[in-house]
C-alpha cells in the first residue's frame, strides 16, 4: 500500500446451497456409506466422479456402478507447504487417481511424507474418515498400497 492510498476492508460472504440432483447426490451418498461410485456410459466405460449427461452425446446417464477404493496414480504434483483448506496440514501430493473399475481419474491427495515416495503408476488405497457426511473429504486421502 502506497502512502495516501485509500484502503477499506470488503468482505463478501454468502452460504450458497446446492441441489445435487440424482447423479451427484448418489455419488455423495455413496461416499457417506464408504462406497465410491461411477456412472456407466453406453460404451461400457465408467466415469468417476460421475456426470449427469454423456460428455460426447449429451444423453442422460443413469447406471451408477460401484468402483474399488484402490487404484493407480495417473499423474501427480508435490505440495511442499500445505495451505488452509487443503486436505492435509503437512506436505502431500495432489494426484489424479484412476480407481480400479473406473476409466477416468479422480483428483485427490496422496498422503506420503516425501516426494521420493511418489511415482506415476504407483498403487494407492483410499483412507476413509470414521465420521462421514457425504463429501469428497470423507476420504482423508490416498495412501500407498501396500503401505511404504
Amino acid at each position: 500500500m502506497t502512502e495516501g492510498e485509500l484502503w477499506a476492508p470488503l468482505t463478501l460472504e454468502y452460504p450458497f446451497t446446492r441441489t445435487t440432483g440424482p447423479v451427484i447426490g448418489a455419488f455423495l451418498t455413496g461416499l457417506r456409506e464408504g462406497v465410491l461410485c461411477g456412472i456407466r456410459r453406453p460404451d461400457g466405460s465408467v466415469l468417476v466422479p460421475p456426470v449427469e449427461y454423456d460428455p460426447e452425446t449429451a444423453e442422460p446417464l443413469a447406471e451408477m456402478v460401484p468402483v474399488a477404493d484402490t487404484g493407480e496414480v495417473v499423474t501427480w504434483t508435490w505440495t511442499s507447504e500445505a495451505r488452509d483448506h487443503q486436505p492435509w496440514d503437512r506436505p502431500f501430493a495432489w494426484a489424479m487417481v484412476k480407481l480400479d473399475g473406473a476409466d477416468t481419474p479422480l483428483l485427490h491427495a496422496v498422503l506420503v511424507d516425501d516426494p521420493s515416495q511418489m511415482r506415476t503408476g504407483m498403487r494407492v488405497r483410499a483412507r476413509w474418515r470414521d465420521e462421514r457426511e457425504g463429501h469428497v473429504r470423507d476420504i482423508e486421502g490416498f495412501v500407498p498400497e501396500p503401505p511404504s
Binding site: T19, T20, G21, P22, V23, E52, Y53, P60
Partner: peptide, 12 residues
C-alpha cells in the same frame, strides 16, 4: 424450489 434437479438438470 426445484429441489429434485441440479442446475444442469433444470436447464436440460
Amino acid at each position: 424450489t426445484r429441489g429434485d434437479v441440479s442446475m444442469p438438470g433444470l436447464v436440460r
